[in-house]
Structure formats: structure tokens, C-alpha cells
């Protein structure tokens, strides 16, 4: 007995894409993670001759999978990751395999932060983190231009400060 009362609505994508540089950032993150796992295996494989097959084999698998993800995943993600801030809410869409839409109303926002990881900074990017009183985790927009992120955080702070109540 499928849903009897559906009105046939669906979620539209949020308006804005992430900054284009996010692709390079994701790609380098993937490359670095792959290297962090694969390098020790390769080095050990060269040093320890008897176990060479058992070390270099997994290393090859890690490199192939990690390299493949480094090429394809950032493009898939870039196509799917979107964000939007309206007068009343922050709306994001993230993920490819597990696509996630988040909506946080302005009236329930508790804090607005910007964060910049070292690699992120190298690409001139920043993350805007919007927390509510829920333990479901913050809503983050992890791929904005540095200056744009600062400005957005500032605007959000003004809007949320203007809203009374303890946001629970």
C-alpha cells in the first residue's frame, strides 16, 4: 500500500555550487590519504623481502582504488554539493553515495563558525559551520571561497542574533 497522500513534491537542489577549487582540494585530500596508507606498505615491502607480495599487493590495491576515487569522486561530489541561505533557513545538499539534504531554520541556529584546514587554506577555501542545539551534528558548507565564507558567517551571525529565544 504505497503512500496514499503524496502531493508529488520533490526537493530542488540548493542554488549555489561550491567554489570550483574544491575539486582540487578534494582530489589532493584523496591523494594524500592514499599516500599515507600506501607509502608505509611500499617502504616495508622494499625492506622486508620475504613479505614483499603481502605488502606490495595491498599497496597496489590501495593505490588503484585511492587513485580512482581521487579522479572520479571530486567530480561526482562537485556535481552534487550545493548550498543556499535564504531569509529563513540554511539549506545544503552533500554526498554522492549517501546524498544528504540539511535544513536548519535561522531561528534555531546557535553558533556560526568558519574553519580552515591547512590544505584548505592552500586552495583559498574555508568551511562555514552552522550549529543548532541538536546532537545530529552541525550543517557545514565545506568549500567556499575564503572571503565569501567570512562574509556569509558574518551575515548569518547578524540574522541569528536578531532572533530571540534559546533555540531549543
Amino acid at each position: 500500500m504505497p503512500a496514499p497522500r503524496t502531493t508529488g513534491m520533490q526537493l530542488r537542489p540548493p542554488r549555489h555550487r561550491y567554489d570550483r577549487r574544491v575539486v582540487a582540494w578534494w582530489r589532493w585530500s584523496a591523494i594524500i590519504w592514499t599516500a599515507v596508507i600506501a607509502l608505509p606498505l611500499v617502504v616495508l615491502g622494499i625492506i622486508i623481502a620475504p613479505a614483499r607480495v603481502w605488502l606490495l599487493g595491498p599497496a597496489a590495491v590501495v593505490i588503484v582504488v585511492g587513485g580512482g576515487l581521487a579522479v572520479a569522486l571530486p567530480l561526482w561530489w562537485y556535481a552534487k554539493h550545493r548550498w543556499e541561505v535564504t531569509e529563513h533557513a540554511v539549506y545544503t545538499r552533500t554526498g554522492y553515495f549517501w546524498q544528504t539534504w540539511r535544513v536548519a531554520p535561522m531561528s534555531r541556529i546557535q553558533t556560526v563558525d568558519t574553519t580552515r584546514g591547512p590544505l584548505q587554506r592552500a586552495f583559498g577555501l574555508a568551511t562555514v559551520v552552522v550549529t543548532t542545539a541538536s546532537a545530529a551534528g552541525p550543517v557545514s558548507i565545506a568549500g567556499l571561497d575564503d572571503a565569501q565564507a567570512t562574509e556569509l558567517a558574518h551575515e548569518l551571525t547578524i540574522v541569528t542574533n536578531a532572533t530571540p529565544g534559546d533555540a531549543t
Binding site: A3, T6, M9, Q10, L11, H88, V103
Partner: peptide, 21 residues
């Protein structure tokens, strides 16, 4: 459809701006 309708109806106005037919 049922899930989005449920969310839309539960908190009026919150999800509606992001829904299209």
C-alpha cells in the same frame, strides 16, 4: 513523496521553499 510531504506538513513553511513539483 510521502516523506517530504510529512516533513513539509510537520513544520509549516520550513521545507516548502525547497520543494518543487
Amino acid at each position: 513523496g510521502a516523506g517530504l510531504d510529512l516533513a513539509d506538513e510537520a513544520v509549516p513553511g520550513l521545507l516548502r521553499p525547497f520543494l518543487v513539483s
